[in-house]
Design a protein around this nucleic acid. Structure first.
Lengths: 253, 253
DNA sequence: CGCCCGATTCCGTTCAGTGGAAGACTGGCC
DNA sequence: GGCCAGTCTTCCACTGAACGGAATCGGGCG
């Protein structure tokens, strides 16, 4: 940019983006000072850039003076293909599943070595779960994660198996155990977890295929599985096939 | 910026934002040239900025070489308060409504003189409708719009009544007629439309109040209303009260 | 093979961006 | 009421990041 830059080499754009990136799930509202600190910028610089972002609608200022993500950014984000393609096609199927089981229903894809939740339905009655739309969780501790991991390329599997952080007392942290489970996922075509992500929460998940290739996973979370399992797997598989068919029909994305 | 700028006075940030703003509902994928044209920038400039946006994840490039909104922008957009507050609290109620009626269910707020759709549920069975999440429609031709308009400040009402574009043969374009309807909305506490936005689509909507003040509207779209109306209004009102209560309970945004 | 249209790279010019310092608020505390 | 600490906002002289016309690459088509 110019003049007396403290970090030469940084572009204006990268600074503006750093400001946007300062927001995350745990920091949805930030003061100017925090924003500047998290973006690694001097306060006056942040102030000027933030002013532009607010004017455009990328950020908004609350009455209390804090900054939050703005409406305009929200609705541009909604144009992402992640949203328009898979999520919209899958939506009615998720509702059907939710209606039939009243469990929390998840739609997720793999993003690097994590699970990215694209959609989540949960009523008042469902078990409380940690995930929320747009959030990322480790693959080894979630049902949808295991499905996606089982179908992921070798290098991703290696990377994930090399580091299995413990989340609850039941989280699988032994690579060998997980590897055996993944083999079973491929054989049975569904995965389960038992309190591996949160105590009191179990899950079942199946892959969603588009022309044979696994592109996403569909899962549900319940207090326990018990003898319901076959019924749930059946329901999930029907929905998953429906989504897969809808996907290949509308050949976009 | 610098050097031989063709439009002096424009900031780098505003150019980068213009690139993001080039995307809209009807332009979800753009080539570099189109992107540059829509943002009003020379192609090489757009190329450089787009490169940075892609590197950061704000945009992504499809295999075919076109640009689309990226995942990172999607999930930062999801942090907008519009999303986290109202929408998340209302979500279970929308599901309940959808489950009970199988009609398309809408959650909307007023944004200036338009209706902004925050959420929409529709199954395979529902009537096709034009709205989608994040889209904006005129207030005078939609059920949720009439509710929001009836409770809007005077200057907004003036502005809307001054220009009532025709959408279908049944759209209300007479300010007098609409004004009478708005009065009735205030009295009955619900609004209806009959093929005013799209032929074959009728709607009912009710306000959502947070501590007495109308902050949003809840509506549904059906092929016709008929004698179902009282039942639908009842269902909507129950859901709306529930959402209102949940809103004041969790005193955020 | 040659043409055309879009994407990409180059590079000399120059003004938009920078951030320390100083000033204005704000609210809490004595 | 007066003081102080923590924010936010405004100023402004310096300078290297951004600009974009021109040239080049690439690939689809006739």
């Amino acid at each position: 940019m110019a003049g007396n830059t403290s970090t030469p080499g940084a572009t204006v754009t990268s600074r503006a983006l750093a400001l946007l990136g300062a927001f995350d799930e745990h920091h949805r509202r930030l003061t100017l000072t925090d924003l500047a600190a998290r973006a690694g910028l001097p306060v006056p610089t942040a102030h000027r850039l933030v002013g532009e972002l607010v004017a455009w609608g990328a950020l908004a200022r609350t009455p209390s003076g804090e900054y939050v993500v703005g409406r305009r950014l929200w609705d541009i984000g909604l144009l992402a293909p992640v949203q328009t393609g898979l999520r919209q096609l899958a939506s009615p199927f998720l509702h059907d599943l939710y209606g039939a089981t009243l469990a929390t229903v998840h739609l997720a894809v793999r993003d690097g070595t994590e699970v990215l939740y694209l959609d989540r339905l949960s009523g008042h009655a469902s078990v409380p779960v940690v995930s929320s739309i747009g959030s990322r969780l480790p693959m080894h501790a979630t049902g949808v994660g295991k499905v996606l991991l089982a179908h992921a390329p070798d290098d991703v599997q290696q990377a994930v198996l090399a580091d299995l952080p413990r989340v609850t007392a039941y989280t699988i942290t032994q690579p060998g155990t997980l590897r055996r489970q993944l083999a079973r996922v491929l054989r049975d075509d569904y995965a389960t977890t038992v309190e591996e992500m949160s105590l009191g929460g179990c899950s079942v998940a199946v892959p969603i295929r588009r022309d044979g290739e696994v592109v996403a996973a569909l899962g549900m979370v319940l207090p326990s599985l018990g003898r319901e399992r076959p019924r749930l797997v059946g329901a999930l598989q029907v929905a998953s096939r429906g989504i897969g068919r809808a996907l290949s029909a509308s050949g976009n994305e």
